[in-house]
Write a protein that binds this DNA or RNA. Structure first.
Lengths: 146, 146
DNA sequence: TTATTTTATATTGTGCACAACTAAATTATA
DNA sequence: TATAATTTAGTTGTGCACAATATAAAATAA
C-alpha cells in the first residue's frame, strides 16, 4: 500500500497516542487533587492569574469555547473549587474565581510538573528541543485554521 | 508563581493543543470522505490490512478499547463503510471488513497525507527528526502505563 | 468432566470537544 | 436614534475516550 497512508508513518497518529499517554500519566496524580486534565488546565490559568477572570479569557488561554467550558466550569463549581459570578456591568459576562479550596490545591499541584518530567525520561536539553519543535508546528498549523 | 506550573512551560499543553490543531486540519479533508479522524484511523488499519480483522486487533493497532470501538464501528457500519460479522469458530470474536464503498474511499484518501504535510510547513528532515523524538517519548511514557 | 480462569465484545455512565444555534447585551452606523 | 452588527455565554446534539461492569464463549486446570 502507499507508504504515506501507513499508520506508522503518520506524525498525527504519534501525537494522538502521545496526548493520550500523557493524559493517562497525569490521571493518578490529578486524582489526588480531584481534578481531570482539562480541569487542571483551567486551574493553571487561575493560579497564574490569581484574580477573577472571564470565561472568554479562560477560553483564549486554553483554545476552548463555551460549549466545552460552560459544563466543565459548572462541574468545578459543584466541586467547590471555583465560583461563578455574573458581571453587573455586562450581564452576558461571567467571572470565574478560585475558592479557598481551589487556592489551596496549588500547593499539592506544585509537585506535579517535576513528577511528569521524570516519567518522560527526557533530558532537559531534549525537553527544550522538543518544546521548540512543537512551538514551530503550533505556529504553522494555527495559521491554517479558519 | 512557580515557573513549572505556568501553562507556556508545559510540554503536555503543547501536545494537547497540537493534537487539536491537527484534527481540525484533517476535518475538512475527511469530511469529503464522510469520516471523522478516529474513523479515518480505523480505515488506515483496514486499508493496510486488506483482509477481515478482529475488533481486538484494530484495538491493538490504535490503542483503543471496545468501549470506544464498539459504538464507533457501529456508526461506520451504518454509513456502509464496513461490515461486522461474528466469527463462527469463536462466537466472542467479531470480524470487521471493508465494503466496496469502504475500499473505494482509499483512492480519495491517498491525497490526504501530502496535503497535511504541506500544511505543517515542515521540511522532510524536520518531520523525520520530530517523528523520532516523539517515538522516543512514546516508548518512555508507554513503559510507565499500568 | 467439572470448575476456574481467561478472553472478546458489549453496555453504562462520565467527561470532554466542538459545531450549530439561541439569547441577551453592547457597540457601531446609517 | 433606530437598527444592524458584534460580542459573550449558554444550550443542544454528536462523537469520541475510558473506567467499570456484564455476558458469554473458550481455554485451562483440577
Amino acid at each position: 500500500m502507499s507508504e504515506q497512508l501507513h499508520l506508522d508513518n503518520q506524525l498525527c497518529f504519534r501525537l494522538y497516542k502521545l496526548n493520550k499517554n500523557l493524559t493517562k500519566l497525569y490521571a493518578p496524580l490529578l486524582k489526588e487533587l480531584g481534578l481531570t486534565y482539562p480541569q487542571y488546565l483551567v486551574m493553571l490559568v487561575m493560579w497564574q492569574q490569581n484574580t477573577p477572570i472571564l470565561v472568554k479569557d479562560i477560553g483564549n488561554h486554553l483554545d476552548l469555547d463555551s460549549g466545552t467550558l460552560s459544563p466543565l466550569l459548572k462541574r468545578m463549581e459543584k466541586l467547590e473549587i471555583i465560583k461563578r459570578t455574573r458581571s453587573n456591568e455586562d450581564e452576558r459576562a461571567v467571572f470565574i474565581e478560585l475558592t479557598a479550596h481551589g487556592k489551596h490545591l496549588k500547593n499539592k499541584a506544585k509537585l506535579i510538573p517535576a513528577k511528569l518530567f521524570t516519567l518522560t525520561e527526557l533530558s532537559k536539553t531534549e525537553l527544550l528541543n522538543l518544546k521548540s519543535s512543537l512551538d514551530e508546528l503550533l505556529d504553522n498549523t494555527t495559521k491554517h485554521l479558519s
